[in-house]
Design a protein around this nucleic acid. Structure first.
Lengths: 209, 209
DNA sequence: ATTTTTGCACTGACCAGTCAGTTCAATTAT
DNA sequence: ATAATTGAACTGACTGGTCAGTGCAAAAAT
């Protein structure tokens, strides 16, 4: 517990309540979807009165939007960190991509529900939080695109590659493989999954043994 | 006596109505999600009365389930066809995978809404159609796994690869790249996207020019 | 003293599913 | 032909229930 009663922004108690609400909302919405999840359910799972939800968030969809921002913020930070550490250690861009794949897997391993929910909402249109989602997606994909571009500039990647499409494909590879891992063979280790994806990234699939 | 009129695969009128309902439902649910889409909306977009929906389908979720089965059936058939044609022409397994990637892209190009909806629902839990979804997913992924296994047996792929994880990753690669293509840069040609994915599949990303 | 949370009753909009009645298209009788 | 009949297909107003969001006085925490 943090005893320091810092006044910077909000009280600790309020922050704790919001956190509880995030955690309750994320699993429920991942399981059932946004519309099928009721505010009463969220409050109950968080162990909080319904009124408290509305004391802390303007509406159900605002709660959800802030949840999205919160989660993608964590992911982006983690990807950046992985890329920077690889750079700091003077390793190549392939290693940087590999480190980001691992960071992605670690994130999904820790927050599977959030990932699930994010994927389910990402390509929807006509939803209230559409624009939030776009912004936040771009932040994450941009990190991958950045590493690819640097790799091309450094001559480490072919300059024939399409940065945007390749970044999207890499993200998809990790996302879907990880969700399948969690959903259908959760007994596998993170290292197994990472090894399979590394091999694919480095073209060691079609390569003869 | 129940079958009075000519019955070559169901009455034409009824079949046409169901088709209209599928088409209306698929776009609405892709845009908004299952729970946020009302039966009234579906009926209105299909140009049909609400009662007709219930005359043709037992419930909203049955309509959705049959829609899922219908769509994944098309996809699976198309993937199989691509793999078989490559085999018939005596090409290798890498070519077969490449042909399946293209078949996947063609499918998504033709039915983007269905794909969107499928991805959004696939990893949910606790939903009525969960089991349908699992079965149907397995059918599609199994086609990819089959080709990978044959490739390993033929010595064309490394026997170190993890068939299940690699298949999931390949599917994810195509799925996410294609959805991004449709959502964020729809002006690109199918060939562009196919080329980018081919390159990734064949490990020509990190390879120097 | 002030902020935050609780508990709970209430409202108004919305929506899945129903059902009694109507239309359509084909078959049979005149 | 054409009128009558039949069953399948379709219609849309209605019902019963659900749920987001409100209001507020009292209690608890800081």
């Amino acid at each position: 517990m943090e005893s320091s009663s810092a006044k910077a922004g909000g009280s600790t108690r309020r922050e704790a309540t919001r956190q509880k609400l995030y955690e309750a909302a994320v699993t429920l919405i991942a399981e059932q979807g946004f519309s099928a999840t009721t505010v009463d359910e969220i409050a109950e799972r968080a162990g909080v009165a319904k009124g408290t939800v509305y004391y802390n968030f303007a509406s159900k969809s605002v709660l959800f939007e802030e949840l999205l921002r919160h989660g993608v913020g964590l992911l982006t930070a983690s990807l950046k960190e992985a890329a920077e550490q690889a750079a700091r250690e003077g390793r190549g861009k392939v290693d940087a991509l590999d480190a980001m794949i691992r960071a992605g897997l670690v994130f999904i391993d820790r927050y599977p529900a959030f990932t699930q929910l994010y994927v389910a909402e990402l390509w929807r249109t006509n939803r209230a939080w559409q624009s939030t989602l776009m912004v936040v997606r771009q932040e994450a994909v941009a990190v991958v695109e950045g590493v690819l571009r640097e790799g091309v500039a450094a001559g480490e990647f072919s300059d024939e590659i399409d940065v945007q499409l390749t970044a999207a494909a890499l993200v998809g590879m990790v996302l879907v493989a990880a969700l399948d891992w969690k959903s259908f063979q959760p007994e596998r280790s993170l290292d197994d999954v990472h090894a399979a994806l590394s091999r694919l990234l480095q073209g060691r699939v079609s390569g003869r043994v």
